[in-house]
Structure formats: C-alpha cells, structure tokens
Design a protein around this nucleic acid. Structure first.
Lengths: 273, 273
DNA sequence: CATCTTGTATTATTATTTAATACATGTTGT
DNA sequence: ACAACATGTATTAAATAATAATACAAGATG
C-alpha cells in the first residue's frame, strides 16, 4: 500500500477530518502482510518497511517506533528486525465480539464440523475479495489455510463465486470489473467469460464447487448465507483434499450439509434482525 | 484507555519518535473492546467513543472518520453509530502468519482435538494476562470463549498459572505484583497466598486444573510450552464442562494428552530455533 | 581494512493536527 | 406538538506536534 501523499488534493474537498498519521501507521502494519505474501519474509528491517510501505526513512522510523511502544510490533534487538506482535490479535476479538453473524454462525459451524468430520469455515466479502472470518479446523492443511483473516480473490474461490451469484447483476459486474484475474494455481480459471458461467451455475444450483482453483489438491465447496431479500452477505465453505476426495464424493457428502448449514445461519440471522 | 496528553513530559526524554496520532487512533478502536466488556455495547455513538477513549469530541470525530475511511470501523447511517469492521481481522492473519510457534502448534492442536474430541487452545502471555491465540473448537460453548484474541487474567486461569509456574521466581512475582486479583466468577480464588500455592502445585505436577475460576461450569486444564531453558512462553489449554465432566475424569482423560501436546510443541519449537 | 549500507539521534521548519465554535439534526419530556 | 436538550456535522484560525533533512554510529560486504 502506497500512501497517497496528496490525499487532500486527490479528494474532492480537502478532508480535514482525515488524520494521515493514522493511515501511515497502518501502512507500516500492512507492509508485513505484503512482505510475507510477496517476499516470504516473517520479519522486516527498517529499510524494507520503508520500501514496501512507500514511507520515507524518517517516517518509517517514527511509525515503527510508535507501534513497538504500543505493543503491535516487536523488535529483535540482535537482528534489528521488526515483526508483528501479540497486541494485534486483540482486534480480531474486537471485531468478532461485536459481530452478530459470528455469534449465530459459530455454534452451527462447530456442530457441522463435528457431525461431518471436516473443516468448516465462514467467509465474508470485502471489495473484490473474501475473508475467512471463522475457521473450525478438522484436518491438517497448509498453515496459511488454517488461519482466520486470510484474504482471497472472490473470482477464483467457491465462497466468492457463490456470493457473487447471489448479488444483483450490477453488483457482481462491478466487483468483477475491478478484479485482476491473477491465477492462484496452474488450474485457476482466469477467463472472465468462464468465471461468469461459473457464477451462473452457482446461482442455478445454490452452491459452488471449486477444484484446485486457489490451492493445489483442494476441493472447495460453498453455499451462501442470505438476508431476507435473498442477498448474500457471507458464505459457508468446506475444503477437502484430493486424492482422498473426488468431486463425486463431495457432491454426495459435502454439498448437502454445506447448503443446510448456510441456510440455518441465514434463517437465524433473519429472526435476529 | 486514556491517552496521556503529556506523554512527552511524562517520559524521561521527550520522545520525538512517537507519533501520538497513531496512539489516539488505536484508543478509538480500543474503546470498542472496553465498551463491549463493561457496557455490553456492540456499537458506539460518537459521544460514547469520546467518553470511553478520553478523547475530546473533535478528536473522536476525526479519528473515527479516519478509521471508517480506512475500513476498520463502519458507520450505520441510520443510527449514526459505529462498530468494528472487517478490515480489523486482517491483523490476526498478519500476526499468525509470521509466528513460528503458531505454525508448529496448529497441526498438533488439530490432531489432539480430533483424537480426543475436545476443544484445544493455545495461549500466550502478555503482561498480567494470557491471550488465546489459536482455538480449535469442538464443543459448543459461550460465544466469547470460542473467539481467538480473548484476553484473561493469568492469576485465575490454568494456562496463566502454568506459565507463571515455569518462569523465574522474580518474573512470576513481578506479574503477580501488578495483577489486580479481580474475581471472574463467584469461585475465583483471589487470595494471593492461595494463588501462589496453586502455582507451586502446577510447578511440581507440570500441569494445572482450574475449576470454574474464570467461567462457570468450566474445568480448564493446561500444560506449559517450554523453550530450551525450560521457560514457559505459551500453554496448551483444554476446557470441558460440568456436570458431564468431573475433575477425576479430567485427570484421567485430559491431563495426559494436554501434557503430551504441549511437550510435542516444545520439542518441535526447540528444533526449529 | 575501506566502502557501502543500514540504523539511530537531533534539529529547524512548517504542514498537519488541533480545539473552539457554529450550525444542523435528532431525541426527550411535558 | 413543541420546546429544550443532547448529539452529530462542518468550518476555521492558531500552534503544536509531526516532519524531512542531516549527521553520526554501527554493521555488513567485498
């Protein structure tokens, strides 16, 4: 994330209610996600933070120092490198505890996971991406794929497609228009036409199965969580792995309870609000 | 969290590398945790944010606006109230993905959960508290008790005590000295002498069982994750509930695999570093 | 051992944040 | 239904607090 230095100029009216220092602080934290994803680095030096965040050396220094003092970064005195600190995870709790969807979904996801012996996840859409908000892990998997908060493009994931399928035509098109269609695996379908066909299929069938679209060996199944108008605002997702599983087995054993779980959450949420 | 307005004066040397605006931004986010815990509020009005954070009206306005623009808060245009937004949960991922302990622990926790049919958690210490960093849920429980990022006082939780038991005398004393010994349930042991006895017991036995100390009906079992010097830097914890479980059953069925899982994580971590 | 890169500390400058204020909108009680 | 109050929003002059330049120290590299 490169901070827009001329934010005020770029906006219609200079936003005097926007505190740039806050954005810059987050830009530093954000550098760690980028650094991990693009360079595979767990910790970053000051100059790396500077490069990735786009902040100059002095700014990196000040914001990094600030974040260390606040407990959101920690510094290895030996290597002089920084890494995310424990203070960060409190924000997950803050979000979840005030999230009515999570409260309703959690027991249902746990129940489904236990009853069917698989991992069961909840996803919520953000821009062109989906985020895994709740994970109830049940098999070992790639470490990345077991952590809540992971972000994936909507266009190549079952939960993303199933949410797009249950939005208005315009909404879906807007999201697709700003998607980058970068492949995640060698099997990722990146042709926009093919992606649209998958969305149509998901709309007709009420669920979506993705094979190795975002992770090798993974068969991902998802069904939408709908509000009272039938608009998707979340998805239940279950991953299983090849070669133990085939799409045939998934259709028989996984699809029904994924749909059922998503429907149960939709129903409870409807009553709540 | 009340922001120290005279931070520079309060510190030995005025810290020119500390950006106060960042702290204030986090103070606003922090207000939501406090608001939820102390007032049970899911969303907050501007004036509530102002009251809880200690920032004045203007500051609350600016920082709240900023956080909304950055996607860390969302505003209900109807009620004009704010609540934590999805952007926040990315920080959990950022922390976890760069955390070697988590990577080692995750598959072991999943395995243990599956093998023994219980929830299995990992906790890390912060100041006088412990934080649940990984949760592998397996039974339904209080919603709060299923969310990673939850913070609890060390003195009244099995993982907290078992970590204190495997620190130096001074370290443990320092932490206890700044603990507030506020009871969490009507059975919480708050007498410092009794707490020290529990720590000694945990040190001798290598594990700790807590009955209804932080949550009613909960029997909590924990064992320490140790570094090569024998210092605890995390704990494996398993909660079960009364009356289905008794301490006798826990000693027989739970304790052995909690110790075993913690030991396995310690061992792998040792090899890694 | 010299050269380069990276991290740390200090400062004058000014741009950004600030707090006061005024206005708009909503809420409450009689 | 209206008045009185509380709360939210927008604007601005003033000055503090953040900034970026610079110098120095400490490692890394060849």
């Amino acid at each position: 994330m490169i901070v827009d230095r001329n934010r005020t100029a770029a906006r219609r009216r200079p936003d005097t209610l926007f505190v740039g220092s806050v954005e810059k602080g987050f830009a530093v934290l954000h550098a760690f996600r980028t650094g991990q994803r693009e360079l595979g680095l767990r910790d970053l030096s000051l100059s790396q933070i500077s490069q990735i965040s786009g902040l100059d050396k002095s700014a990196s220094q000040r914001f990094t120092n600030t974040l260390v003092e606040l407990g959101y970064l920690e510094k290895d005195q030996r290597t002089r490198r920084y890494r995310p600190a424990l203070g960060l995870i409190g924000f997950y709790y803050t979000y979840m505890i005030s999230n009515p969807l999570a409260e309703i979904a959690m027991p249902r996801l746990i129940e489904a996971s236990q009853a069917h012996g698989t991992t069961v996840n909840l996803c919520e859409p953000v821009g062109t991406d989906i985020i895994y908000t709740i994970r109830v892990p049940h098999q070992k998997a790639f470490f990345r794929a077991t952590i809540p908060g992971r972000r994936m493009p909507a266009f190549c994931t079952a939960p993303g497609l199933v949410i797009l399928a249950n939005r208005t035509e315009e909404e879906a098109e807007t999201i697709l228009a700003s998607s980058d269609f970068e492949p995640m695996t060698e099997w990722t379908i990146t042709d926009p036409k093919a992606v649209r066909k998958r969305i149509e299929k998901a709309r007709r069938e009420g669920y979506c199965i993705s094979v190795q679209q975002s992770l090798t060996h993974e068969i991902s199944t998802a069904a939408p969580v709908l509000d009272s108008e039938g608009r998707a605002f979340a998805a239940v997702q279950v991953p299983v792995y090849m070669p133990e599983w085939t799409t045939g087995m998934v259709e028989e054993k996984i699809v029904p309870f994924v749909i059922e779980t998503a429907r149960a959450i939709s129903g409870s949420y409807f009553i709540e609000s």
